[in-house]
Simulated scan of single mutants.
Amino acid sequence: MEHKAPGGAKPPQRAGTKTWVRAGAAVVAIVAVVLLAKWLRSLDPLQDFLSTYPGHVELPENAPTGLPAWLGWQHFLNAFFIVLIIRSGIAVRTTARPKAFWTPKKRGKNPSKKISLDLWFHQTLDVLWLVNGVVFTVLLFVTNQWMRIVPTSWEVIPNAVSAGLQYASLDWPTEDGWVNYNSLQVLAYFLTVFIAAPLAIVSGARMSEWWPKNAQGLNRIYPVEAARAIHFPVMIYFVGFVVIHVFLVFATGALRNLNHMYAAQSSDGWLGFWIFVGSVVTTAAAWLLARPLFLTPIASLFGKVSSR
Rank of each mutant, 00 (worst) to 15 (best):
D171A: 08
A264L: 06
R256Y: 08
P68S: 04
A32V: 14
T152Y: 10
A229V: 06
K304M: 07
F247I: 08
H245M: 02
V142N: 02
A37L: 04
W129M: 02
G272V: 02
F101G: 12
I195E: 00
L71R: 12
A25G: 00
S208Q: 11
L255I: 13
M1A: 14
L170M: 15
V135G: 03
G72R: 06
T124P: 04
V57G: 04
F250N: 15
E209P: 02
A91G: 10
V161R: 07
A264I: 06
P223K: 03
P173M: 04
G55T: 01
G272T: 05
S112A: 11
S116K: 04
K106M: 05
A37R: 05
L43F: 00
I157L: 14
I221P: 10
L255S: 15
F141T: 06
V202Y: 06
G89Q: 10
W274A: 05
A284K: 08
F294K: 01
V138R: 05
M261R: 00
S307H: 13
P54F: 01
A37N: 06
P98T: 04
V92Y: 07
A290G: 10
G72E: 04
G72H: 05
Q166S: 15
Q74P: 00
K109F: 07
N144E: 15
G217W: 12
Q185W: 15
N78Q: 13
W39D: 14
W178K: 06
H122D: 00
W172H: 10
E58Q: 06
L59S: 14
V242T: 10
V57P: 03
V28P: 07
F190R: 10
V243F: 09
V127T: 15
I30V: 12
A200T: 10
G24P: 04
G7I: 02
G24R: 06
Q13V: 15
P158K: 05
V31Y: 07
Y222K: 08
P198G: 02
T103I: 12
L43H: 01
V57C: 07
L248Y: 14
V34I: 11
A23I: 13
I230R: 12
L295I: 07
W73F: 14
P45D: 03
